Amino acid sequence: MTAIGHSPLVRRWRAAATRFTTPLLPDDYLTLVNPLWSARELRGRIVSVTPEAEDAATIVVEPGWGWSFSHAAGQYIGIGVQIDGRFVWRSYSLTTPPSRDGRRLVVTVRAMPEGFASRHLVHGVRAGTIVRLAPPAGEFVLPDPLPGKVLMLTAGSGITPIMAMLRTLDRRHGTGSPADVTVVHSAPDADRALFADELVLLARRHPGWRIVQRHTRVEGHLLLHEGNPGAGRATGSSPRATLEGLVPDWRQRETWACGPTAMLDAAEKAWADAGIRDALHLERFSADLTGGEAEGGTITFARSGRTVDVDGATTVLEAGENAGIPMPFGCRMGICHTCVAPLRSGAVRDLRDGAEARVAGTDQGTRAVQTCVSAASGDCVIDL
């Protein structure tokens, strides 16, 4: 991509303007006029925060100067919000179809109990707040043309990227959608179910769509295969629903699944056992970082000239962000490799499986490591 701040014309203008504005840079004057005018970073202004449930809200962001990125339904963007004097970055799925003018970005955020940023976005942020943005990314998208039969399997906030897909199909085809789409969505109860009313309306508009909404506190978790932990009966006397019972032809459907780790792990096993793993597309919101344990240590960010002491549970990405370093990132789960940085010396440990990456010293070259899933294993130097 070519950001507006990197075009030859803008570079010449900034160079000339800098000679007349030192010690301030041109961006400093631009942001005094309009905080969304920046050639150095992508910014946006929060237009509205609308509660969706007790612990969730839909946030509309107006992107500023330099935002020229279209997105596909199912992709996510990065949002950096200032909390206690520092910017905290998180990625959220866009919930609306790609707009014609790109002037509105919409995400629906659920406040997680341990979610420092998500709780602030749902309960603390106000309209008018300036945020930083990262362009759309992610491979969890629908192909064109659409497969003949589609299954969308979601739980909790995993419905958010699926809503973008459903809204896109609805806008593209209206009430005449030829798609054979089955959606199975689980939420704890009606009070925490996102988009429940809209899902009902979409099912009415499209005779070929079947949308099943489940409440797990009453009906229990959907059993994707008989080996599910806790298989048996839900609250009361009724047996738990199975995927086989709800969607008998699930093996013939291309499937997009998003939700809690346990559900996605169970889906991977069920599809693998059926010999159709390639027909399953997953979107995970968090990485399982319980497979490894790091010692912690001192991380030196060589190019930024900053050094931080961290424990073994703090990733290199988090350490850099906490120190105010502009760290590259994407999915924050070790999938997209956007966060890869050179390890110049020392060692880091992958918190997913405990694998260690080590470089003996600066004369031994560097080694690429994923900062979002790696933590310091003793003192180390990162070339950022």
Score class of each variant (00 low, 15 high):
33 V>F: 13
34 N>V: 01
7 S>Y: 06
20 F>I: 01
27 D>C: 07
29 Y>S: 03
29 Y>P: 04
19 R>A: 07
18 T>L: 09
20 F>E: 06
34 N>D: 12
8 P>Q: 13
19 R>D: 04
11 R>F: 03
7 S>Q: 10
6 H>D: 15
24 L>N: 04
17 A>C: 03
11 R>Y: 04
36 L>A: 08
17 A>E: 01
32 L>S: 11
18 T>Y: 13
14 R>P: 03
33 V>H: 14
9 L>R: 15
11 R>T: 12
37 W>T: 00
26 P>C: 07
24 L>R: 06
19 R>T: 06
8 P>I: 11
8 P>H: 12
31 T>W: 01
16 A>N: 06
27 D>W: 08
14 R>S: 12
17 A>D: 03
17 A>K: 01
10 V>D: 09
18 T>G: 06
15 A>S: 14
36 L>G: 07
12 R>H: 13
26 P>H: 03
33 V>S: 11
5 G>L: 04
17 A>Y: 00
12 R>K: 11
35 P>Q: 02
6 H>T: 15
35 P>D: 06
12 R>W: 09
26 P>S: 08
23 P>F: 01
9 L>F: 15
28 D>P: 08
13 W>Y: 13
11 R>V: 09
33 V>K: 09
14 R>I: 10
21 T>C: 12
27 D>Q: 05
14 R>L: 12
29 Y>C: 03
13 W>I: 12
8 P>R: 14
22 T>C: 04
30 L>N: 05
21 T>A: 06
25 L>R: 13
25 L>G: 06
28 D>V: 03
27 D>N: 15
7 S>G: 08
10 V>T: 07
29 Y>R: 04
20 F>M: 06
9 L>A: 15
13 W>F: 14
16 A>T: 07
33 V>W: 15
24 L>G: 00
9 L>Q: 12
18 T>H: 12
5 G>Y: 00
34 N>L: 05
18 T>R: 13
12 R>T: 09
7 S>P: 00
21 T>N: 03
34 N>K: 00
6 H>F: 07
9 L>Y: 13
32 L>D: 14
18 T>D: 04
7 S>H: 07
37 W>I: 02
12 R>V: 09
37 W>E: 00
9 L>W: 08
32 L>P: 02
19 R>M: 02
19 R>L: 11
5 G>H: 01
30 L>K: 05
8 P>E: 14
18 T>N: 06
13 W>S: 09
23 P>C: 01
23 P>Q: 00
35 P>E: 00
